[in-house]
Design a protein around this nucleic acid. Structure first.
Length: 608
RNA sequence: GCGCUCGUAGCUCAGUUGGAUAGAGCAUCGCUUUCCUAAAGCGAAGGUCGCAGGUUCGAAUCCUGCCGGGCGCGCCA
C-alpha cells in the first residue's frame, strides 16, 4: 500500500542512506510503513536495521546520521529516531491539505493502469437447467467485484460466464423432457431443475458401478453383472448420447429445443443476478457450447507437440512433479472439462489477448486449476500473441456454511436457492429501514412503501455481499443474516449508513467546491491520511485479488470519519473557512465511500 | 496413503507480505446526550497467535516436524 507521499519519503531516505553509507541510492530499501500509533508519527522507516547489519554499523547511529542529512523538502517535519533504529516521520499539515485538495477530483486519486491488454474473468458458472443456488453466490459477486476494480483502473474486462450448456448432462435433460412429451415453451426452471437432478442421479449410479468394478479389479464377468444392474442408467445414457450426437451434427429442431432450455434457465438466472446488482448479462455468455468445435483441436495440439500420451485408450497430459495426470480425452473419444477449460484459456489469451485470465471458482477445484495452468504453460498459451506474459490465476474461495457449520442446506436437505436467500436478505433490510422510518427525526420518515423497499433491497443485498467479500476469500463462513444486516460493526449497512449520514450533512451544508482544505485537528489528520490511501488500497486489492482489503479499509475510513465528525463541528462551526474545509473533507469522504462500495457491487442509499 | 487448506480474545474476523506494547467488531461492564441522524462516540476487561523446534538484530508472518478441523485425489463437471 502506498500513497504519493510515501514514495517521496522513500526517495528522500534512499538518497540519505546512500549518502551516509556511500552506496547507490537505488540499492536501498528504506522499508516505509504507516506508523502503528498515530500519536507518534504518520510513517516509519524500518530500513536502518537491515542496512546497518549489512554494512557492519550500529543501527541506531546509522538512523541518526540519516536523519541528519535527509531532505524532505519541507513536506515533513524533522524525523526522529526511536527504539533500535526506527525513523519516525510526520507529514506537515500544509502538505496534507494540499494532497487532499489534489485528490478531490473525479478520479479520486486513483491511478490508471495503462496496460492495453484485456482481463478475462471466469465467474458465476451457471449450469443450464439448474437454478442458481448458494454455491453460485460467491463465484458471482467476487468475480463481479474484481471485474469492477479492474474497470475502475481503466482496464478492459471480459466477464466470462462459462455456462455449462453442452455435453451429456444437458443431453440427458433434453432427452428426458422430450421423451416425457413436455412442452418446452411453457417449462419453468423448476421443471428443468428436477429433470437435471434426475439426470445427475442416473449418471451417478452408472459412475458408482464403474468405480466399484474398478476398485474391485473385477473381471469381465463382474463388469457385465454391474452393467446389468445399471441397465436403466446405461440405457438412459445411450439415449442421451444419441441426442448429444444429433446436437453435435447440427440437428436443427434439436438445437432449437436446446436453445429453449437455455433461454428458460437464463431468464431465471438474470432475475437473480439483477437482484444481486451484478453486471452480468447475455453478452457475457460464452459457455461450453462455444468451445465445442475447438476441443478436437486442443487435443491434437497437445498430441502434435508430444505433450500428451495415450493411456488405456484415454489421452493424458503428464507433469514432472506429480503423479496425477490431466485427462483431456476419454477412451470413448469424449472430451472432459479440462479439455474445454484448455480451449477457453487458449481463446482468452490468444483471441481476447488477455494479460490476466482469472478464475473465480470454489477452492475445491484447486488441483484442477493447477493442472490446467501447467498444461497451458506447457503448450505456450500463457502468452498473448504479442509475446506478453499472461497471468493465469485461480481465486479460490471457501464454502458458505449453515449454522451447523456444514454446507448450507434447507431443512429437507436440498441446497438453498440463491433467490430464496436474497429474498430473505431483502425482507430483513426492508423491515429494518421501515422500522427506522417511523422515527420523525429520520430522513426516511414519510417515504412511500416503494422507496422504502428499494432502500431495503440495497441494504439487504449490500449486507450479504459485504459479509461475503469482507473476509479472506479462502475461508468458509457461516451464513448469519442477523450479523450481516446489523447496523453496528464491520458490516455493509454500517458503511452505507455512515455514507448516508454524510449525504445528509452535505444536503444541509452549502458546500463551495473550491473552498480551501485546512487540515489542523488530529482527527482531521487521521481522516486525511486515510483518504489518501485509497489508490494504494485499490491497487493492492487488485494485485492480490483480495476485495476484503478494500472492505477493511472502507470500514476504517468510515470509522475515521465518525471520530472526526464526533469531535470536529461542521455545520455549527462559526468560522466559515473551517466549516467549508470540513464540508469538503466530508464530501470527499462520501464520494470515496460511494466509489469504494460500488467496486464491491454495493449501492449507497442517500437516505436510510 | 498422497496432496491442498485453515487454526489469532468467549464469538466473528483483520494483521500493510519479517518490525516497536498483536488489532477491530459482537457480547460484557463503565462513561458521554439543552450537541450536525445516539442507527453514535469514548473507555475498561479479555491473548503461552494450535504445539515443538529452527532461521533472524527482530517471527502471528519464513523453514521443518507434529496435533486438530475442512477439502481434493484418471476417463463426472
Amino acid at each position: 500500500m502506498s500513497i504519493p507521499i510515501q514514495q517521496r519519503i522513500a526517495e528522500a531516505l534512499k538518497v540519505a542512506f546512500g549518502t551516509v553509507l556511500s552506496i547507490s541510492p537505488d540499492s536501498v530499501d528504506p522499508v516505509i510503513r504507516r506508523a502503528q500509533k498515530a500519536e507518534i508519527a504518520d510513517f516509519q522507516a524500518n530500513g536502518a536495521m537491515a542496512l546497518a547489519k549489512k554494512h557492519g554499523q550500529n543501527p541506531k547511529e546509522l538512523a541518526e546520521l540519516v536523519v541528519g542529512v535527509v531532505d524532505f523538502e519541507n513536506f515533513a517535519d524533522c524525523p526522529t529516531v526511536a527504539g533500535p533504529g526506527f525513523i519516525n516521520i510526520t507529514i506537515k499539515n500544509e502538505t496534507l491539505s494540499a494532497l487532499v485538495e489534489a485528490m478531490d477530483t473525479h478520479a479520486l486519486g486513483v491511478v490508471l493502469d495503462e496496460d492495453p491488454h484485456a482481463v478475462a474473468i471466469d465467474l458465476c458458472g451457471v449450469n443450464v437447467a439448474k437454478q442458481l443456488h448458494v454455491g453460485h453466490l460467491r463465484a458471482t459477486i467476487i468475480g463481479d467485484s474484481i471485474a469492477r476494480m479492474y474497470e475502475r483502473v481503466g482496464r478492459k474486462v471480459f466477464r466470462e460466464n462459462h455456462l455449462g450448456d453442452w455435453g451429456l448432462p444437458i443431453a440427458m435433460v433434453l432427452e428426458q423432457l422430450l421423451a416425457s412429451g413436455a412442452d418446452l415453451d411453457t417449462l419453468s426452471i423448476l421443471d428443468l431443475n428436477s429433470a437435471y437432478k434426475n439426470a445427475k442421479l442416473i449418471a451417478k449410479d452408472e459412475l458408482r458401478g464403474e468405480k466399484t468394478a474398478r476398485a474391485m479389479q473385477a473381471g469381465p464377468h463382474r463388469l457385465i453383472e454391474i452393467e446389468e444392474q445399471n441397465i436403466g442408467a446405461i440405457d438412459a445414457q445411450n439415449k442421451a448420447k444419441k441426442v448429444l450426437n444429433a446436437l453435435q451434427q447440427g440437428d436443427g429442431q434439436l438445437l432449437q429445443d436446446w436453445q429453449k432450455l437455455i433461454d428458460c434457465t437464463m431468464a431465471s438466472v438474470y432475475q437473480a443476478l439483477d437482484l444481486l446488482n451484478v453486471k452480468i448479462g447475455p453478452e457475457n455468455n460464452r459457455g461450453e457450447s462455444f468451445y465445442r468445435d475447438r476441443l478436437g483441436g486442443v487435443v491434437a495440439s497437445f498430441v502434435a507437440k508430444n505433450l500428451a500420451e495415450e493411456d488405456n485408450g484415454a489421452t493424458v497430459v503428464r507433469f514432472d512433479d506429480r503423479d496425477r495426470p490431466m485427462l483431456i480425452q476419454k477412451s470413448d473419444g469424449g472430451f472432459l472439462y479440462a479439455t474445454t477449460d484448455l480451449a477457453a484459456i487458449q481463446f482468452r489469451t490468444q483471441e481476447l489477448k488477455a494479460s490476466h485470465v482469472i478464475y473465480v471458482v470454489d477452492s475445491r477445484q484447486r488441483d484442477h486449476f493447477k493442472d490446467l495452468f501447467d498444461g497451458a504453460k506447457l503448450i505456450g498459451w500463457d502468452k498473448t500473441p504479442d509475446g506478453n506474459d499472461s497471468v493465469l490465476a485461480h481465486v479460490p474461495f471457501g464454502q458458505v456454511l449453515g449454522e451447523d457449520k456444514k454446507p448450507l442446506k434447507t431443512r429437507s436437505g436440498s441446497s438453498v436457492t440463491l433467490s430464496s436467500l436474497l429474498e430473505e436478505a431483502i425482507d430483513r433490510g426492508t423491515s429494518e429501514v421501515t422500522k427506522r422510518s417511523k422515527d420523525p427525526a429520520s430522513p426516511t420518515h414519510g417515504m412511500c412503501v416503494d422507496d422504502l423497499h428499494t432502500i431495503g433491497r440495497q441494504i439487504g443485498i449490500g449486507a450479504v455481499k459485504y459479509a461475503d467479500l469482507s473476509n479472506d476469500l479462502i475461508r468458509d463462513y457461516v451464513f448469519d443474516i442477523d450479523r450481516m444486516v446489523a447496523f453496528e460493526g464491520n458490516t455493509g449497512p454500517y458503511i452505507q449508513y455512515a455514507c448516508a449520514r454524510i449525504s445528509s450533512l452535505i444536503r444541509k451544508g452549502n458546500l463551495q467546491k473550491d473552498a480551501p482544505v485546512t487540515i489542523a485537528e488530529p482527527q482531521e489528520r487521521a481522516l486525511a491520511l486515510k483518504l489518501l490511501q485509497y489508490n494504494g488500497v485499490l491497487q493492492d486489492a487488485i494485485a492480490y485479488l483480495e476485495p476484503h482489503r478494500l472492505c477493511t479499509w472502507l470500514y476504517e475510513l468510515t470509522e475515521a470519519f465518525s471520530t472526526f465528525y464526533q469531535s470536529c463541528p461542521v455545520l455549527k462551526n462559526e468560522d466559515e473557512t473551517i466549516k467549508q474545509s470540513r464540508l469538503r473533507l466530508a464530501d470527499l469522504t462520501r464520494r470515496v465511500v460511494v466509489d469504494g462500495l460500488d467496486l464491491l457491487g454495493i449501492e449507497s442509499p442517500e437516505k436510510m
